[in-house]
Write a protein that binds this DNA or RNA. Structure first.
Length: 1245
RNA sequence: GGGCGGAUAGCUCAGCGGUAGAGCGUCGCCCUUACAAGGCGAGGGUCACAGGUUCAAUCCCUGUUCCGCCCA
């Protein structure tokens, strides 16, 4: 069955995905048991609107829920994931109306209610099916046998039941209240369906209302002048002195013949706002409505359902509200009653569906009394019976629930659940010319039932006879219910409620409600209220709210923006002409099929709690590649299986190799981690864990290591490796299955092993096996990996082709390490491309070799004849610089008595150990650097113009300023370790080879002690000066200044580098650059060669700064003779290289920054916390130091950067601005600390 | 006006008191027979700004500025 040729070279998702979904369906794997011994896990799919097709947000929903469902199913749960669609009242009615208009030019009224609804049902059939199909393409393991629709018979029955019960309980009532009305949709809206636009530009008009029986006028300020025609009062603040005595009088309402009262109302009127006089229009403004109620004002409706002026408005009747506004303003102007118009920012409510400005409208509607429902929901969350993830949504939920208003649930639409209220056609009031009469006035029967005044009979079924008059003819309330009304019942209506079904018993409360945070109020809150009220328990235990998916630019996806992405286009691919513009731009040849697995993995990976998801095509491509990687790793395994077939049962550990044990151990860790992350809904991290494990550990290391035995002759070893390969793959596939269901199934089916189930989707989710957690193996593997990485670094840096086999000498003082490396040379050689490896104790090193110094081993690769050694020297210097940099940082900490005293001992200990390690490493590197030094050349002649260290020029690379070699020793890094390094360096200078590392802790301690006391006795003024320079190179400005001051106090006459730098400012390019660099120099200390060469080596005298730096120190000390001259050829190369890079510096440094803040301090401070602290305490000093540092840092930066960076020449222009790059030192430091982060992470994490 | 997020590498994002990470992109060397959708190596960070707390701050606190969302 394991035909290796079965797997194609590249993974092709399309065919595989279609095949497996059909198979799963056929085998009924998605179906949940109504009753089962297994624990239940249930999720109801938030029902997508049947308005159209799924967008990428739905894909996210489906992905997350399917991950949960598959994971739980594999974990032994009786898992129900229940699909369905939502009828989406307004939205669907609108799209169908639109289509009707477009295709047939008809309105819904042309068809009539029944015929129109038929059309909508047709639409529903079409798009409902399409939505189902899309979910299938996404791999969603939904229980289609239980698919539901919010308007199917069962749901409708539930809706009726709920409505009637609420009515019976007094929680559902009908009332004439002011509600939000969309004049375009011509229906009531709930508060939530109104969107508030921030600060729209508008005007506020000041209108004079003449006070009756007086010459006085009252000026009201209003943003809606047209509504004055509906004013039934003007209000003033009772304590407003301007209007004392006016309350109780009346004004003449302009443009009408009405007189309206002046009322005093402290609640409505803010005397500080506008004129302090407010027009009151109770039928068209929510605040005025309340005022009207308080003062029992008449409520005059002047706008009809389409927001046209009613006949109440006389000459304005029939005008649209905005037209009317113009007319009213014109008329007021004419009458001289318009005082002024001012610009005004206003907030306008618009219809969520059609963006029309909504209009408050007085009309009879159905409402749910919400408070009695909200309270238990709040309590449930308070008590933790339902939890929000992320937790931060809890407060949002509370806030809204505690300020909730009664819910207007009636909609003047056709598509939806018609309200189960009936009116007797015999005795109900009728519409007619008497509609202006009071509500309780007797009526003349003219037209149809006047629902505003008729008495409803609420019942599950149409009543047989009218309890009032005995009439048998009824008409049902024409309104339908808010879509969210039926959605609110979803968690139990879908399970059969109000019938008592086994499903209800098994799956309610559902386990998780997973949905977008945008519908927390619309839907989640309402489900909570309804669920608790009707089921007596919360509808779900956990609410996981996911983020919104936005496009790559963070824009919300919308049809109008044209940035909507159809998930199926990603899954299946799409021709360019079908794509929206940005995607077409990105994929001019059309979108390739990424496959559902890649899309799902991408969405899962990008899912972070509390942050929107910007869908990145780059990442999508990356995860597609991940699928391919998995595919090919499996392909590799399968092609090497031979006749092997793994039997069931535990692995025999006795035959395992180190690599086997290592990967098995790593696998257990990944398993544990992935499971824990899933438990906490950390989908992104779970995906990342699996990604890292598969790629960086299993593929990059284990498969490579396995090749040895697979390609070898030892049949037993071969089988053992095969066993481990299959074991791991099986588990990796199962771990990944919830994320990538298709590819994992496809591969899993091909593994040569006994399968406990017919499909991976019902196989158990892997559990960690403690028996395979193997610390020892991981420990043994570490030096092997370290050695391989070291060798690869050497190869990479030397640009050695992988085909070139090299010899390597590995030395370690540690017997165990040597033993391991010797034993596992079989791993070492192929992975590092070695033809030969010699493992031994530290001793003779090969000449002309490249070296890698690890924490416990050193590696040498003779490079003579392979590459020139210049590159290697550069690399070593860089390494040295990094070590020094880090060491300096750690030593700074250790020097601080507070740190030693207050930090936890283990932290201090760790730092101490780190210093030791770094010291040793540095010594070895320096030692090696010296040993591969080119033939000594004549020392360069020091520039005659300067003798101070700063101005003295170091030679390009190794050149030492003759004037200061000895002082160099006092470089900052050594300062703390002080004595030791000093001694060591001196030794080096004297030609001694002994490593100082073992020199003695006592010396270190002594030095430290001295430093802590601040005495630094034993340092000469000159030492202080050099120390200052060294500090400066680290950006430790304050420390530097202190040392300079001490030097001066002691008689040292040299000027501070800053001064020096300044002095040099007018000089020619190279010279200046050097001078500038000097202070920050440590940056370049790692590569003096480079900076020198970059300078074209034309101004050797100027590079002096390098000398002072710690790194060069050693160089100089130990290899004083080394000259740049020695390697002219190299130099040239280096030069150009550097030149190319130089400009790069500019890149990082925005011009604006160069302009002028004092970056130095900041930069310096950053890298050197200690210094920062110092600065804080000594402001005066800081000031002093700042200037110096700024200059120093500013300048030096570019140099280092230039030296290090490889950037295209095009950027040269910006070099100057590079000054800003101050943090150069940081960069250097960074490198020091992260020799090989990626590799390290790969290997160890 | 109130509330909640966010600001970390060129891009998309993790991390959140103790040596800054990933993927993609970039640069260099490689078509090494699982994978060029690849391998190995490298480069790349004022962790928005300003204060504060701390031995130590990207991380905690306060404030500021931008961006986004929600509510009124």
């Amino acid at each position: 069955m394991t035909d290796t040729t079965e797997l194609s070279k590249a993974y092709e998702p399309t065919e595989v995905e279609a095949r497996w979904y059909a198979c799963w369906m056929e085998r009924n794997y998605f179906r949940a048991e109504a009753t089962s011994d297994k624990p239940a896990f249930s999720i109801v799919l938030p029902p997508p609107n049947v308005t159209g097709s799924l967008h990428i947000g739905h894909a996210l929903t489906a992905t997350i829920q399917d991950i949960l469902a598959r994971w739980k199913r594999m974990s032994g749960f009786n898992t129900l994931w229940l699909p369905g669609t939502d009828h989406a009242g307004i939205a669907t009615q609108m799209v169908v109306e639109k289509e009707l208009k477009k295709t047939e030019g008809k309105s819904r009224h042309d068809l009539g209610r029944a015929a129109f609804l038929e059309r909508v049902w047709e639409w529903k059939g079409k798009y409902g099916a399409r939505i189902g199909e899309q979910h299938r393409f996404l791999g969603a393991s939904l229980d289609w046998s239980r698919e539901r629709f919010t308007m199917d018979e069962q749901s409708s029955a539930a809706v009726r039941e709920v409505f009637v019960r609420l009515y019976e309980e007094g929680l559902m009532y009908r009332a004439q209240k002011l509600i939000n009305w969309c004049p375009s949709c011509r229906t009531a809206l709930s508060d939530l369906e109104v969107e508030h636009e921030e600060s729209k530009k508008g005007s506020i008009w000041h209108i004079r209302y003449p006070v009756k029986d007086s010459d006085r006028t009252l000026t009201v300020a209003t943003t809606r002048p047209e509504t004055m025609l509906g004013d039934t009062a003007v209000a003033i603040h009772p304590e407003d002195e301007r209007y004392l005595g006016l309350a109780g009088k009346s004004v003449k309402l302009p443009l009408t013949d009405r007189e309206i009262p002046i009322i005093a109302d402290a609640e409505l009127v803010d005397p500080k706002f506008g004129t302090g006089v407010v027009k009151v229009t109770p039928a068209h403004d929510f605040n005025d409505y309340q005022t009207g109620l308080r003062h029992k004002l008449p409520m005059l409706t002047i706008l009809d359902e389409a927001a046209r002026m009613t006949k109440e408005t006389g000459k304005y009747a029939g005008l649209d509200r905005f037209e009317a506004r113009k007319q009213v303003l014109a008329d007021l102007t004419e009458q001289g009653l318009l005082e002024k118009e001012e610009p005004h920012m206003l907030n306008v409510g618009t219809c969520q569906r059609c963006a029309t400005v909504v209009e408050p409208r007085l009309s009879p509607q159905w409402f749910i009394k919400i408070e009695p429902l909200a309270k238990p929901a709040i309590e449930a969350v308070e008590q933790g019976r339902t939890k929000f993830v992320p937790e931060s949504w809890t407060n949002t939920f509370f806030h809204w629930m505690r300020n909730i208003h009664d819910w207007c649930v009636s909609r003047q639409l056709w598509w939806g659940h018609q309200i189960p209220a009936y009116y007797c056609t015999s005795c109900s009031p009728r519409q007619g010319d008497d509609t202006d009469l009071p509500l309780d006035a007797p009526t003349v029967k003219v037209g149809g039932v006047d629902f505003a005044r008729a008495e409803p009979i609420v019942a599950r079924e149409q009543p047989k006879s009218c309890p009032k008059c005995g009439g048998a003819s009824f008409i049902q309330d024409p309104d339908v219910l808010d879509t969210w009304f039926s959605s609110g019942l979803w968690p139990f209506s879908t399970l059969g409620w109000p019938r008592e079904t086994p499903e209800l018993k098994t799956f309610y409360p559902t386990s998780v409600m997973e949905t977008g945070h945008d519908i927390i109020f619309f839907w989640v809150a309402r489900m909570m209220m309804m669920g608790i009220h009707f089921m007596g328990d919360v509808p779900f235990r956990t609410v996981y709210l996911h983020a919104m998916v936005r496009d790559e630019k963070g824009q919300k996806m919308s049809k109008t923006k044209g940035n909507v992405i159809d998930p199926l286009d990603i899954v299946l691919g799409a021709p360019a002409d079908k794509l929206q513009p940005t995607l077409k731009n990105r994929f001019p040849q059309g979108m390739p099929p990424f496959g559902a697995d890649a899309l799902r993995f991408t969405l899962a990976s990008l899912t972070q709690q509390g942050r929107d998801i910007k869908l990145s095509m780059d990442r999508l491509e990356g995860y597609k590649a991940f699928g391919n990687k998995l595919w090919n790793a499996s392909r590799f395994a399968l092609m090497n299986m031979g006749d092997f077939r793994m039997e069931a049962g535990p692995l025999d550990r006795s035959t395992l190799t180190l690599a086997d044990r290592w990967i098995l151990s790593r696998l257990q860790r990944a398993t544990t981690e992935a499971r824990a992350l899933l438990e906490s809904y950390s989908f992104g991290e779970a995906a990342s864990t699996l990604y890292q494990f598969l790629w960086a550990e299993f593929c990059d290391w284990y498969i490579e290591l396995a090749k040895g035995s697979l390609y070898g002759e030892d049949a037993a070893a071969k089988d053992s490796t095969r066993r481990v390969l299959v074991y791991c793959l099986d588990r990796i596939l199962r771990l990944l299955h919830p994320f990538m269901p298709f590819i994992t199934e496809e591969i899993w089916q091909k593994l040569p092993m006994a399968r406990p189930t017919d499909s991976i989707m019902i196989a158990p989710y892997p559990e960690p096996d403690a028996a395979h957690v193997d610390e020892a193996a991981e420990g043994e593997m570490a030096p092997v990996i370290a050695a391989i990485e070291g060798l690869r670094t050497i190869r990479g840096e030397s640009n050695l082709s992988p085909a070139t086999k090299v010899k390597a000498v590995v030395q370690s003082a540690d017997v165990r390490t040597r033993e391991l490396l010797e034993r596992w040379r079989g791993y070492l050689m192929p992975l590092a491309g070695l033809s030969e490896v010699t493992v031994g104790a530290p001793g003779a090193k090969p000449p002309q070799a490249a070296a890698f110094v690890g924490s416990n081993l050193e590696i040498y690769v003779p490079l003579a004849g392979l590459v020139d050694l210049d590159a290697e020297r550069e690399r070593l210097k860089k390494e040295i610089a990094r070590a020094e940099q880090e060491m300096a940082g750690v030593l700074r900490k250790l020097e601080n008595p507070n740190f030693v005293a207050k930090a936890p001992p283990d932290v201090v200990e760790k730092d101490r150990a780190r210093v030791e390690e770094l010291k040793e490493r540095k010594a070895k590197l320096q030692d090696h650097l010296q040993r591969i030094a080119p033939e000594p050349a004549m020392p360069e002649t020091p520039p005659s113009e300067s003798t101070t260290p700063e101005s003295s020029t170091p030679t390009a690379e190794e050149g030492a300023s003759p004037s200061a070699p000895a002082q160099v020793k006092v470089a900052p890094n050594q300062e703390e370790k002080g004595g030791v390094d000093l001694g060591q360096e001196l030794k080096g200078e004297l030609g001694e080879t002994g490593t100082a590392s073992e020199a003695g802790d006592t010396q270190v301690q002594d030095a430290l002690a001295k430093l802590r006391e601040g005495t630094k006795e034993g340092l000469s003024p000159s030492d202080h000066h050099d120390l200052g320079v060294a500090y400066m190179t680290m950006g430790l400005v304050d420390d530097a200044m202190r040392e300079f001051n001490r030097a001066k106090e002691g008689g040292d006459t040299r000027e501070t580098p800053a001064e020096g730098a300044e002095a040099e400012e007018g000089e020619s390019g190279p010279v200046k650059a050097h001078g500038d660099m000097l202070p920050t120099r440590e940056v370049t200390q790692g590569e003096p060669v480079r900076s020198a060469s970059k300078k074209k080596a034309t101004a050797p005298g100027k590079v002096h700064g390098d000398k002072l730096a710690p790194a060069p120190t050693t160089e100089e000390a130990e290899a004083p003779a080394v000259k740049k001259a020695a390697a002219p050829a190299k130099k040239a190369a280096g030069t150009s290289a550097v030149a190319r890079k130089a400009p790069a510096a500019a890149k990082k440094a925005p011009a604006k920054k160069a302009a002028g803040k004092a970056p130095a301090k900041k930069a310096a401070a950053k890298k050197a916390p200690a210094k920062k602290a110092a600065a804080k305490k000594a402001p005066a000093k800081k000031a002093a130091g700042k200037g110096a540092a700024k200059k120093a840092v500013a300048k030096k930066a570019p140099a280092k950067k230039a030296a290090v960076k490889k950037a295209p020449a095009k950027k040269a222009a910006g070099r100057k601005t590079a000054a800003k790059k101050a943090p150069a030192k940081k960069a250097a430091a960074k490198k020091a600390t992260r020799a090989k982060p990626a590799a390290r992470a790969k290997a160890r994490r």
